[in-house]
């Protein structure tokens, strides 16, 4: 296959990618457009006369929201890994009774629509006074990531060489020590994948945020954008600037951790 690598395929590929990414380009373009130019017809295809008005608006209004999203994302990552990794260890390496049933439950759990979970959480949080709290959102967001985390960790840990673990045991390490000093260090890549996805999902969450934190003082940035769209339809440059800033984690992920991303997408949907 290396013999012929026709250029026309590369050119075609670039064209396809450009088409696919046009909405992203357009978001960038609009974010640099002056407010008075937003209604131009036809619109400027390139930011020939760029402005940072939109980004100034982001700095003025969205910084606290970005901080809140960061906090929620990190909290979700911590909670997810702390719960998922030990459970996966028990399922894959400690002969947990009912481990297969548990796996099945987790698969089914992923199919439950978020809107139903949101209603359940809403009903619970009203009673407990947990609406509009960062903790409430971290808990709710983690429900998306925990089943994924357990399944991904389990798949990886089942493949660990048993000799290594037996050696640890012969050396006198108990289950906990084996977990912390042998299994977890070896599972680093899985942990990165789980953490990345947990963060990204929590950062991007709209359904839980818009239901459980509607009147919160601490809004995640997704709600910041949403309330913008609702109130302020004249300033699409500011909306798009916020959208650009809110996309930064995804961009970093793509650049720094692309192989983990692909690993997460394919994890299991196909067996290889």
């Amino acid at each position: 296959m290396t013999a012929r690598r026709p250029w026309w395929k590369t050119i075609l590929g670039v064209v396809f990618t450009a088409l696919m990414l046009f909405p992203v380009y357009w978001m960038l373009n609009v974010s640099f457009t002056k407010t008075e130019d937003l209604r131009l017809s036809p619109p400027h295809l390139f930011p020939t006369d760029p402005t940072l008005e939109g980004y100034a608006e982001v700095l003025r209004q969205q910084l606290p929201n970005l901080g809140t999203s960061l906090l929620i994302g990190l909290g979700t990552v911590a909670l997810t890994v702390v719960i998922a990794a030990p459970a996966a260890y028990a399922i894959s390496l400690l002969n947990l009774r009912g481990g297969r049933t548990l796996n099945f439950v987790l698969l089914v759990a992923q199919m439950i629509p978020g809107v139903v979970m949101a209603m359940g959480f809403y009903a619970i949080y009203v009673r407990l006074g947990m609406l509009n709290s960062v903790w409430g959102l971290i808990l709710a967001d983690s429900t998306v990531a925990v089943p994924f985390g357990v399944l991904l960790f389990t798949a990886f840990m089942s493949g660990l060489p048993r000799e290594l673990l037996q050696a640890a045991r012969i050396d006198g390490a108990n289950a906990w020590r084996t977990f912390t000093s042998v299994v977890m260090p070896l599972s680093r890549n899985s942990a990165i994948t789980v953490a990345l996805f947990a963060f990204l999902w929590a950062w991007s969450d709209f359904v839980f945020a818009s239901t459980l934190a509607r009147n919160s003082a601490l809004k995640p940035v997704t709600l910041g954008i949403y309330s913008y769209i609702g109130n302020n339809t004249t300033q699409w440059n500011a909306i798009m600037a916020t959208a650009v800033v809110a996309s930064i984690p995804a961009a970093i992920l793509l650049v720094v951790a692309q192989r983990y991303v692909a690993a997460g997408v394919t994890a299991g949907a196909v067996k290889d």
Binding site: T10, T17, S247, Q258, V261
Partner: peptide
């Protein structure tokens, strides 16, 4: 082909963006 790996990675972008971002970009 040349650049196929990079281009394929770029195709992941829509999937990684927060839905509110894609949704509002499409709405506009």
């Amino acid at each position: 082909f040349r650049l196929s790996g990079i281009l394929r990675a770029l195709f992941l972008v829509p999937w990684l963006l927060p839905l509110i971002v894609s949704g509002s970009a499409w709405a506009w």
